[in-house]
Amino acid sequence: MILPGATLGMLGGGQLGRMFTTAAQTMGYKVIVLDPDKNSPAGIIADQHICAAYTDESALAELAQLCSAITTEFENIPASTLAFLEQRTVVHPSSTALASTQNRNVEKNFIRAQGIATVPFVKINCSDDIDNLGSQISFPAILKVATFGYDGKGQIVCEDLSAVYAAFDAMGQKECVLEQRIDLEREISVVLARGQDGQITPFPVAENVHINGILHSTTVPSIAAESLQQTAIEMASKIAEGLAYVGTMAVEFFVSKQGDIIANEIAPRPHNSGHYTLDACRTSQFEQQVRMLCGLPAGNAELISPVVMINLLGDVWGNSQPHWNKLLTQPDIKLHLYGKKEARAGRKMGHFNVLAAETSQAMELASQTFEAIKAD
């Protein structure tokens, strides 16, 4: 076990790194963040900020020398960076686990290898692959860049074959995946913690709503059937085991109107849909991340209140500040801002959690409050 007083490393200085840093410091650990942005949200609150690129081997060697263990906040850290660090200190998740989730084609093939369904998909490397699609994919479909896509970025809806050619050109003819759209009933996600001993502790299943490809709200408990929720937890656990994963991770699922459950994406880190755990569970997903990294047993993941989480994007700021008084006068709403200096459209600036005795009450108050705080 790595105990309080030790120093932990975080690759990445965004909001997920910031919330990890807060959890670790609360538990008595020191945190060093490595991030190339001098104003990174995690870097400005960490005990030390190494402002360097993720491929800077001298900076990485310094981080490894100073830290008892190192983790990451997002999957686009080069797997080679983690492999470099693994030669020098404890690193979770592993470079091999990260590599399995960085490319959408590799990720989907991995999921299928676990016996878990994905949407029908085809790897697109060149125009010839589009020529040869035949009946492999029905339209409408979505063309997604294979790497570095997130929050709706790097994806284009295609209504027919000609749109795929145009979208592929718009992507710069980089490796892509063409995914068939499904008749969607709902989107859910499972956040879980897996320890070095293989023990898995899942959080309650979350029900998610996306707007323009970006998560807008998460509601817990989900209204999905109990059997479906249990299946999702079993699938996510199987994926974690297949990756030999250590840490906090999430799996997003589609539920079709026919009742099928389909794995969409793996997030090898805490997840936006797990932010509700900060206020509505006995242990947050970020404390679990600290615990898993340090070889501690998982905390109790029990839900203590129905909750709705609402993302706050830069759009809410307008040309000024949101009407925070409309939110902060509500005793059962918890505000979390990420310390980002500039509000931009589509940029995640924070979130709030609404707690209530009933899910319906939380949903109504969340909707009312979101509309009320928008800047003029």
Rank of each mutant, 00 (worst) to 15 (best):
237 S>H: 12
310 I>M: 12
248 T>D: 00
295 G>Y: 09
44 I>R: 03
372 A>C: 11
289 Q>K: 00
176 C>D: 08
249 M>L: 11
12 G>T: 08
260 D>P: 06
123 K>C: 14
182 I>L: 14
244 A>L: 06
372 A>F: 13
1 M>V: 08
348 K>R: 09
39 N>Q: 08
155 Q>T: 12
277 T>P: 09
363 M>P: 02
144 K>L: 10
270 P>C: 07
239 I>L: 14
25 Q>I: 03
95 S>R: 02
315 D>S: 09
116 I>K: 03
115 G>D: 14
46 A>S: 14
101 T>C: 15
309 M>G: 10
158 C>M: 01
319 N>D: 15
119 V>P: 05
62 E>H: 12
348 K>S: 15
56 D>S: 06
163 A>V: 07
309 M>R: 01
326 K>R: 09
220 V>Q: 00
104 R>Y: 06
166 A>D: 15
322 P>V: 07
22 T>I: 13
37 D>K: 10
292 M>K: 00
251 V>H: 07
317 W>Q: 02
236 A>P: 00
82 L>Y: 02
282 R>V: 01
77 I>H: 03
292 M>V: 04
149 G>V: 06
337 L>V: 14
38 K>C: 07
71 T>I: 02
246 V>M: 05
187 E>H: 13
251 V>P: 01
52 A>C: 09
177 V>T: 08
72 T>G: 05
77 I>M: 05
53 A>I: 02
65 Q>C: 08
85 L>Y: 10
